[in-house]
């Protein structure tokens, strides 16, 4: 799932650098969520997850990119989103996904919270090598 499922719509790519880009990311994801006909609650969950991850990219990753598209896998339709940064990375993935953990100021809900809001969640990172988070929300 770290690559776009074959047969998906074209991928949009946008830089997530300043905090204003978080709003832009939310708008793009909302449009895709509507296109893929996610239910209102699922749209809200996905956009919220994207907002958390986009902010992580800006705050902890020092900026990066978001790639997103309407994903199609057989009969399933959904939205695929990937955030990539070249920041300092996360040394301990398991710890990072624990509720309440945070390397910066905040409540530490970003990663673990976002994971609960989506159907598929993949986190890849190593200290000094940046971070890639990929999420998918499928239409039920």
């Amino acid at each position: 799932m770290t690559s776009v499922p074959v047969g998906s719509d074209p991928v949009q790519e946008v830089g997530i650098v300043a905090s204003g880009d978080v709003v832009k990311a939310r708008q793009i994801i909302r449009t895709l969520a509507q296109q893929s006909r996610l239910s209102l609650v699922d749209q809200t969950k996905l956009v919220t997850a994207a907002s958390e991850l986009a902010r992580n990219t800006v705050v902890y990753g020092g900026g990066g990119t978001m790639r997103a598209c309407v994903a199609r896998d057989g009969a399933k339709v959904g939205v695929w989103v990937q955030f990539t940064d070249q920041g300092q990375g996360i040394p301990d993935l398991e710890l990072a996904l624990t509720d309440g953990w945070s390397s910066g100021k905040g409540m530490g809900l970003g990663l673990s919270g976002a994971r609960r809001l989506v159907d598929e969640f993949d986190l890849r990172s190593a200290a000094g090598e940046g971070t890639t988070v990929t999420v998918v929300k499928w239409v039920r």
């Binding site: 809200t44 919220t48 919270g113």
Partner: peptide, 10 residues
Amino acid sequence: AVAMTLVELG
């Protein structure tokens, strides 16, 4: 929808 999302978010 916001309330349901916040609950899930924790």
